[in-house]
Design a protein around this nucleic acid. Structure first.
Lengths: 127, 127
DNA sequence: GCGAAATATGCAAATTCATGCATGTACTTG
DNA sequence: CAAGTACATGCATGAATTTGCATATTTCGC
């Protein structure tokens, strides 16, 4: 019977109401991702990605963890996670069953590098 | 495996990313509502309400039906409806089991008027 | 400590959005 | 057809968003 807090909800919803941010969130809900990863995924300059990440961070829906030079972000807000599941459908985007992120050629973070060198031929270093 | 259309989804999500619009959508998913109703509900001037309604209308998520002088709008997009159920929780906001809208004192549309005169004392006409 | 890699921050221009208000239109009733 | 009611539309202005870019910061390998 209590009215929802439309202001608060709208503010949270707004986080998804942006194509690139939605893309980031989609990637992030699957598994922690470093910025270079998202950069490769979105095909946008790093400062651009960092800024969108910051918007999400400052909204309190993200958590970060540093691993050497890379900073891995992941979604920490259950509410938003639930919404994303409905808007985007169940998690698919580049995540495997273990919750690790899918290696991307354009990304050179440790996770991607080792994964790539183990799986496919290391064409990465050639380019 | 196919990537979601982030642009399209973001655009649709944006419809909810606004307090007043979210409020309108909440009311609208329960039952058809006329503008005067929403006006009373939001406590905002009529042109303001009409404009928000138009945004939703032009996005194709609303349907309208005229009854005499009043125009009743209702949500016609199942996708958005599903999202609203998750964001706002199950329908509650002023709808009864029959899907009629709850009469509001400030509203003078036929539905409200008759409902009011039958139920509580018609204090409405006094003010 | 130095340079390189990964990420963050600040700023500015362009665009979009929000909102108030005056006025226009459509239907109804007498 | 005249007047009233319900709703729509146009416009103006200020605020917020978007996006690009230059530059700062942090950490690692040497």
């Amino acid at each position: 019977m209590d009215k929802p807090d439309y202001s608060r909800l709208a503010k949270q919803v707004k986080l998804m109401a942006h194509p690139e941010r939605l893309h980031i969130l989609d990637a992030l809900r699957a598994a922690p991702q470093c910025v270079c990863h998202l950069e490769a995924l979105l095909k946008r300059p790093q400062p651009y990605v960092s800024q969108q990440v910051r918007i999400l961070s400052r909204a309190g829906v993200l958590e970060s963890e540093r691993h050497g030079n890379n900073i891995y972000y992941h979604l920490s807000d259950p509410e938003l996670l639930a919404w994303l599941d409905v808007v985007l459908g169940p998690v698919a985007e580049g995540a495997d069953a273990l919750g690790r992120h899918q290696p991307i050629e354009e990304c050179s973070c440790p996770t991607c590098a080792t994964a790539a060198s183990q799986a496919v031929a290391p064409v990465i270093l050639a380019a």
